[in-house]
């Protein structure tokens, strides 16, 4: 192979940011974006199912809109929104090589996520006590499935953040591997944008 041919063959990777792939991009990051794109379909299905079930007349129990605690859910939404800020600050810190600060922000993000999930558990318990169980009516099944799936996503995110924290503590997360934080950050921000949709469409619009 001549020098010119070699340049042509490796052209996409030559200007890559250290990623020796055919696209010149990180495969892990590309994979995460592909996953997030497909996850839009999952949540799209759950949100539209809830909207369809909410439009049906309630035959048993109470309609979900009557038992919402908007001030409480607003605070939960604010907490999750702020966790997105702490996540991006963690990434910024690790990219600058400030590992101590990165760990602080990662742990803060995980804690804010845990506050959100705890709020959701409290909300579910309160709703259940008010006679709004999973199988009470079509609305309740759709509501718990949608918000429950989101809660599971947040919980998985918290576990990934704690793993990052431990990795960083043990020195397995050098600045060169900051992309790991970025990829988990993408997942975390996605969980946040899904809640932005749920908060408006499910809670505020009625």
């Amino acid at each position: 192979m001549t020098a010119t041919e070699e340049e042509l063959v490796h052209a996409p990777t030559a200007h890559a940011e250290g990623h020796h792939t055919s696209t010149g991009l990180s495969n892990a990051k590309l994979g995460m974006w592909a996953f997030l794109g497909s996850d839009c379909l999952l949540f799209g299905g759950l949100i539209s199912t809830f909207l369809l079930m909410r439009a049906k007349p309630v035959l048993h129990g109470v309609p979900v809109a009557k038992i919402y605690d908007i001030p409480f859910t607003s605070i939960s939404s604010f907490v999750l929104l702020m966790s997105s800020m702490t996540m991006v600050l963690a990434l910024s810190a690790i990219q600058k090589g400030d590992h101590r600060r990165a760990r602080t922000w990662i742990l803060t993000t995980a804690l804010l996520g845990a506050v959100f999930v705890s709020g959701q558990v409290y909300e579910f318990t309160t709703f259940y006590k008010k006679g709004f169980g999973y199988s009470t009516n079509l609305q309740s099944s759709a509501f718990y499935t949608l918000t429950g799936f989101h809660g599971v996503h947040v919980t998985i995110g918290i576990l990934m953040l704690l793993t990052l924290y431990v990795m960083s503590l043990r020195g397995h997360l050098p600045t060169e591997r900051s992309e790991t934080v970025e990829i988990i950050g993408l997942y975390w921000h996605f969980v946040d944008i899904v809640w932005i949709l749920i908060f408006t469409v499910v809670y505020l619009i009625h």
Binding site: L25, K29, L30, W33, A34, G37, S38, D39, C40, L41
Partner: peptide
């Protein structure tokens, strides 16, 4: 490429 990947999923959904 990332933008196209994500927007495709979003628009499809």
């Amino acid at each position: 490429l990332f933008r196209r990947l994500f927007v495709s999923g979003l628009v499809l959904a």
